[in-house]
């Protein structure tokens, strides 16, 4: 039964398809030759797709991890008595910041930092902070006052209250913020190829610049599958998190 469930899961099939294409794209050379007879070398070979993906995923992971930790930290600060004065302005900063086009943030990081992977990571981090802050604030605000009172009545210290009550209850909202942040990071990192980062977007831009449609297709399909797979994994994590018995004091 478990095996059948696993086989029926779309996550598995998208994952298998993604890995197969990532590793086996050069094997499809005859197909691309047939479809685009005018293009001499129809498979992108400057760098292997696996190396492109590792670089892409590494940047997204580093930036999103940092953004998640610092974003949750800022949201926690803004909801403590000491930081309550900053709550409205942090919220405004997070919402206004998200109206900035990600591509513009990326482009503006270049004059400040220089070409290469660094501006991409910085832009991904800065932009990724905002959805995490916004959702973590909403999640922490959503903790029912009755639960807070009960925990206080049980004699929980502020730190225990945060660790055992507030953060576990806010976790689905925080996860939703991280999910948005990672989705945007994958897309923005793709554009990072234009400023010298090595990502799955590199074949797309090489293909657009050199008028080689097969390169565009190879990059675009892999980027799309990568993004969809990541989102599916987050959806699964979210379901698992919500399926936990809803006890006010964590697990």
């Amino acid at each position: 039964m478990r095996v059948r469930d696993a086989l029926a899961s779309p996550v598995l099939w998208v994952g298998v398809l993604f890995v197969a294409l990532l590793v086996g794209m050069p094997e499809l050379r005859p197909v691309f030759h047939w479809a685009f007879p005018a293009v001499k070398e129809p498979v992108f070979e400057r760098t292997s797709f696996v190396a492109l993906w590792l670089s892409h995923a590494g940047m997204v992971a580093a930036a999103s991890l940092a953004a998640s930790i610092i974003g949750v930290g800022l949201a926690v600060f803004a909801t403590r008595p000491a930081g309550r004065d900053f709550r409205p302005i942090v919220n405004v900063l997070a919402t206004i910041g998200q109206t900035f086009p990600p591509a513009a943030v990326l482009a503006l990081a270049v004059p400040a930092i220089g070409f290469g992977p660094e501006p991409t990571i910085v832009a991904l981090f800065l932009y990724g902070l905002l959805p995490v802050i916004e959702n973590a604030l909403a999640g922490l605000d959503g903790v029912p006052p009755a639960v807070r009172d009960a925990a206080e009545g049980m004699g929980l210290s502020p730190w225990q209250m945060l660790r055992d009550v507030e953060l576990p209850l806010a976790m689905p909202a925080i996860l939703a913020g991280v999910r948005v942040s990672v989705t945007i990071a994958i897309g923005t990192a793709t554009i990072g190829s234009t400023v010298g980062a090595l990502t799955l977007g590199t074949p797309i831009f090489d293909g657009l610049a050199g008028n080689k449609l097969p390169f565009v297709i190879q990059g675009a399909v892999l980027v799309a599958l990568f993004a969809i797979l990541t989102d599916m994994l987050f959806a699964r994590l979210d379901r698992r998190l919500r399926a936990l018995p809803e006890t006010p004091f964590g697990r």
Partner: peptide
């Protein structure tokens, strides 16, 4: 709709180039 929203913009642009051309 969520699936569409997940696909990075430049990838979707790229994928649309093929049928449109």
């Amino acid at each position: 709709l969520n699936l569409l929203q997940t696909i990075p913009s430049i990838a979707l642009f790229g994928l649309l180039i093929v049928p449109l051309s």
